[in-house]
Design a binder for these strands. Structure first.
Lengths: 247, 247
DNA sequence: TCGTGTGATTGATATGAATCAACCAGGGTT
DNA sequence: AACCCTGGTTGATTCATATCAATCACACGA
């Protein structure tokens, strides 16, 4: 049921180019002029579609491409030696997946489509070559990768310093701002992921996530029905996400 | 007291070059031939020394360089809006600090010397230029940055899935393998950081760290006297670090 | 329409680690 | 020496969240 709404709002772009892509201001081409963009176009493998649950790539398999999300959503996770999964990120349209394996032989994580998802596949070998001739692209890659490091540090902070409520508030706000970036409503959206995924990502038990959602609802911070979420009191969520602020 | 042993074991290299640096196989030059290495040499600012507690760079200040540790040790941390610190990494000789800010205007974190530490300062602007002309260097930069992402993901796993004992075992083993990489004893070394730092890094209270150390000691896994650590039973530590392995 | 399964919620209980509180050891200073 | 100061250790208690257990709600296929 939740699947039909957010999907392929831009799937009409069939034989598209980076130039015409509505996400070009979020994705790789950001730093490129139009002639450079054409060169990027040539190496990008467009229109790869994955259904919910399908793997875009798999940990420990050879690494050849990273992927730009066009529509839908992707989660990445690492499987530990002891066998359990840790979700390391959620990726929304305009975001680049797979940077944790850049220039490595094999994938350091697994990427799975959370809903029907279309991506642009970007072969790394060619991306690296291109980055070598286009300084702007190289710079942008560095930028994206350092961003990724910071995101992960941010997650570490969340996991080691914040309560369940703070973590969930932070996640909701992160999603909110990412919807906003795409000119969608920052206060009313569909969660692309299950409660289970949220719990795993935030280092909590599912039950805790559930409880916090209902608590937030009772406090009038959000309205939640399944994956349909409305952020009612953004302010309150923001101060909550900040956590233990001592004056 | 703990300071005099590990420091400046290579500080005799005064007017050194990357070529002669004993860490060149760990650090940047890895992927470069000797002519390329000379070009790197020209941009590197060698022999910057920091005393224990001094900041190498500071969060929110302009970002211009990253730093390769030559001797000593560095911790990086982010300060959250609510004011508390989260250590995001420890950096030992041969490792590169500051990648989380690559190609950004300001530092995303603070780096502080844990003991008397010497570093090579590498101005990013010139590093980027160089990377543009030397494909091998660009590749290596991508490699280091994705490594950094994976490290951080690894930390997230520890923080969200593992017990205090498992976290500490994992940290000890990580340090062990890094000493080994430098041809030092993997089983007997001096911790460069205080218990406090360990606690912060691993998302624990100092008291917990202390307790686990003594517990490990009583179980005969380690011998610890202050910062002087001996790993007695590597095997046991390894299985412990793996955590909740279900057969 | 009825099972059947999966994801979500709610409640009761258990527990690992935080917190609070002393105390200790060693190093540096006066 | 006597002092303090910082970092480390140990013990008693508390608390947030996990775990265990049931129930619920909805979607789907037979």
């Amino acid at each position: 049921m939740s699947q039909s709404i957010p999907v392929n709002q831009m799937s009409s772009i069939s034989k598209s180019s980076c130039q015409r892509c509505s996400l070009s201001n979020l994705c790789l081409p950001l730093a490129l002029d139009s002639t450079d963009m054409n060169r990027l176009d040539e190496v990008v493998n467009r229109d790869r579609i994955f259904n919910r649950g399908e793997q875009v790539f798999t940990q420990s398999t050879p690494f050849r491409s990273c992927y730009a999300v066009k529509s839908g959503a992707i989660k990445t996770s690492v499987i530990t030696e002891s066998g359990d999964e840790q979700i390391t990120g959620f990726f929304m349209p305009g975001e680049l997946v797979g940077l944790d394996s850049m220039s490595d032989e094999i994938h350091a994580s697994t990427a799975k489509a959370l809903e029907r998802t279309s991506v642009c596949e970007i072969p790394v070998e060619q991306l690296e070559n291109l980055a070598n001739t286009l300084p702007g692209l190289q710079h942008h890659m560095f930028h994206l990768m350092s961003q990724e490091i910071r995101n992960s540090h941010q997650l570490s902070v969340l996991l080691s310093k914040n309560t369940a409520e703070e973590r969930i508030a932070a996640l909701l706000l992160s999603l909110s701002s990412r919807f906003q970036r795409r000119k969608l409503s920052p206060t009313h959206f569909n969660l692309p992921m299950a409660r289970n995924d949220i719990a795993n990502f935030l280092g909590l038990a599912v039950e805790t996530v559930s409880r916090v959602f209902t608590r937030f609802q009772n406090q009038g911070l959000i309205r939640a029905k399944g994956r349909d979420i409305e952020l009612v009191d953004l302010e309150a969520l923001q101060t909550m996400a900040l956590g233990n602020a001592q004056p």
